[in-house]
Design a binder for these strands. Structure first.
Lengths: 214, 214
DNA sequence: CGTTCAATCTTGACAGTGTCAAAATGCCTG
DNA sequence: CAGGCATTTTGACACTGTCAAGATTGAACG
């Protein structure tokens, strides 16, 4: 029962490392966890259900994550990695002349990511981990890195004179990210529900940000 | 059940009505619930603990709230009532000449409320109710009212020409409230932790909002 | 004044949760 | 092939929300 099922779980590709009984249980758990929260939110994720889904006993996950909190942190961390990649890709492919336009698509991509990965986004920036739980050291590092990227964006625009010179770039980065985040949250949390308005509101927001430069 | 519940809800000050066994259990539960979440967040609130605190059996609360969700909605509703009062008071006492200044204190008061009533704020605008749970009809009504007050503020400023005339007041109201809310969230959720910066960031935000008018 | 009634509260139960302790399994190294 | 140790399981405990059924009792009515 245990053995054969374990093998089924993994394709065991060509040179797939099967470190132990299950082989890659950690990643399998992560994938299943993301699936679980994607359909029903974090409140739909229980260690037991997760273990069941993967075909392993209730407490098996505890050898790969100290806690439920650590599991959630791992999901969030993955989320940051994906987001960073998407965002840098967006920047790369936007071979625009106009810096403001590039920034706009950058921002709209941020919104889109939050929308398409609601539950992950909630974990990345939400109370579950940052207030109710305890962010892992490595999660903190990754998130700091993510904010640094944003700040560099702002500094670039700042140097181009697109913001008020009297403000500190740091403050602008904080304030404008908060704005962006707030919009994500209102949609993500179901307070704003008309998703067609999303980009429109964002553009109004962007205009206020950038017009404030002149 | 429906009728008498209305009586419980009211304080009926001088002539303290003790409609039944406990008398005023509903409000007592609400108060204890707010206390519980204030010290430990919503994850520290369980119906059983709540009932224990009040000195009543586990299932007694279910005669005043259909569910835990309804209890949370009631807390949020109270929160809206308090916030509305605080905000209108702030507007009244701010007998300023400069409209922008009045608006600033208004906004700073909003932030202060969110900060001093974190857990209630989370319930008022958070996923727990609006996405994971189901907002009560009356909660929806109250929250709509609250947003209307904000929109009226924006419209007033708009008519005074403090925003870009090309934007719709509705969009501005949405975008700027999202900004404000985002800032609250980042502090409330523990993502931003340096609370001394709060008002400073808010003022940078405000300048961007208002400067965008010229 | 006593009976009835319905709102209120209690007790018991069930399925679910996170997580700890101890036992079992089985791969790798010697 | 034997030992060790990472991995997994089983059992248990204290919680959770909430349902069903019974007990209590304030008030309305005869």
């Amino acid at each position: 029962m245990t053995l054969s099922r374990l093998n089924d779980t993994l394709p065991s590709m060509t040179t797939r490392k099967k470190p132990y009984h299950h082989g890659d249980l950690r990643q399998t758990l992560l994938n299943a966890a993301v699936e679980l929260i994607s359909s029903g939110g974090v409140e739909n994720l229980s260690i037991r259900k997760l273990a069941d889904q993967v075909g392993v006993s209730r407490t098996a996950p505890y050898h790969h994550f100290q806690d439920k909190n650590e599991l959630l942190c791992a999901i969030a961390e993955q989320g940051f990695a994906r987001q960073d990649q998407i965002m840098t890709d967006a920047k790369r492919y936007a071979t625009g002349d106009n810096l403001a336009e590039i920034f706009e698509t950058y921002v709209l991509n941020y919104l889109r990511f939050a929308d398409q990965n609601r539950e992950t986004y909630d974990l990345m920036y939400g109370r579950e981990i940052w207030r109710a739980g305890k962010p892992t050291e490595s999660l903190q590092a990754v998130s700091r890195h993510s904010f640094r990227i944003w700040r560099q964006w702002i500094e670039t625009l700042f140097e181009q004179g697109m913001f008020d010179r009297n403000e500190s770039p740091r403050r602008i980065a904080q304030a404008h990210w908060a704005s962006l985040h707030g919009l994500c949250r209102l949609f993500n949390d179901g307070v704003y529900i008309n998703h067609e308005e999303r980009d429109d509101i964002a553009r109004t927001m962007l205009r206020a940000m950038l017009r404030a430069g002149g």
